[in-house]
């Protein structure tokens, strides 16, 4: 039963790059699995290979050794610097994934319209990304990802290029999207508070080489009170795990 619920399984993942004939270990012996509908955050210091691990888990990058089981699931990703194609308008960016997978024009139009409305992007459909603020750009990034109706949504530090107020609003939006669409979410973050606010499970990594130090279940009840003692206790526990 437990086996069936697993949507991603990483076994003995290692990754190294060769630089100037020297092997540089980025990830070493990574093992974890993610269940359907779980919200998982990967945290750790800079350079611990969080983003590389996310790319491997999503199938964008291949590990040097080990294997990733993800099955025939629809995937989408939201990027730190938005990765919106600057030559396309907002609606064309949102339609990109659908167009590439051969969805009919009428269907694309319908889905794009809905996603644009849901993400609060009405009125900017014809604009190009450079005409938008950071927050709006990331809304387009999220709409583009959701348009393909993914089973698993990967997010690579999606709020770190935004100001704190926009980030706070988008975190709340992400939580409602996760709940409403019953998505599985895997997110990389360098902010422990962000991970504790959002995730069910927090994967703490160490640096050089990137290894999993601890996997912590975050059982705080939702909606989470970001000023409660329990919240701060969880933050302290994870920070202690990072620095231990």
């Amino acid at each position: 039963m437990e086996e069936e619920k697993k949507v991603i399984e990483l076994k003995s993942i290692s990754q190294f790059f060769e630089m100037k004939n020297k092997k540089q270990h980025v990830l070493e012996d990574i093992n974890f699995s993610i269940s359907s509908g779980e919200f998982v955050c990967i945290v750790g210091p800079s350079g611990c290979g969080k983003s590389t691990l996310l790319k491997i888990a999503s199938g964008i990058a291949k590990p040097t050794s080990g294997n990733v089981k993800i099955g025939e699931r629809k995937l989408a990703m939201v990027f730190q610097n938005f990765a919106l194609f600057p030559w396309l308008t907002v609606e064309e960016n949102v339609a990109f994934g659908l167009k590439m997978s051969g969805v009919s024009e009428s269907e694309i139009e319908k889905i794009v319209k809905t996603e644009i409305k849901n993400m609060g992007l009405s009125g900017v459909e014809k604009k190009h990304p450079k005409e938008l603020s950071g927050g709006m750009k990331q809304r387009v990034g999220i709409a583009r990802a959701l348009a393909v109706n993914p089973d698993i949504l990967f997010l690579d530090e999606p709020f770190s290029a935004l100001d704190i107020f926009t980030a706070k609003k988008l975190r709340a939006d992400l939580l409602s999207i996760w709940r409403e669409r019953e998505l599985t979410v895997v997110m990389v973050s360098h902010l422990v508070e962000e991970a504790v606010e959002l995730a069910d499970k927090i994967i703490v990594m160490s640096v050089s080489p990137g290894k999993i130090k601890k996997i912590i279940s975050n059982n705080l009840s939702r909606p989470r009170n970001l000023r409660s003692d329990n919240f701060y206790r969880s933050v302290d526990e994870i920070e202690a795990a990072i620095h231990s």
Partner: peptide, 27 residues
């Protein structure tokens, strides 16, 4: 070229001539 554009194309399964036409040429 921006790596995240390549990653975005990859996650949407854009390969071959589609990649050439919709990513590489405009970029």
């Amino acid at each position: 070229r921006r790596q995240d554009f390549e990653d975005a194309a990859e996650i949407f399964g854009v390969h071959g001539w589609k990649r050439f036409l919709y990513l590489e040429i405009p970029e």
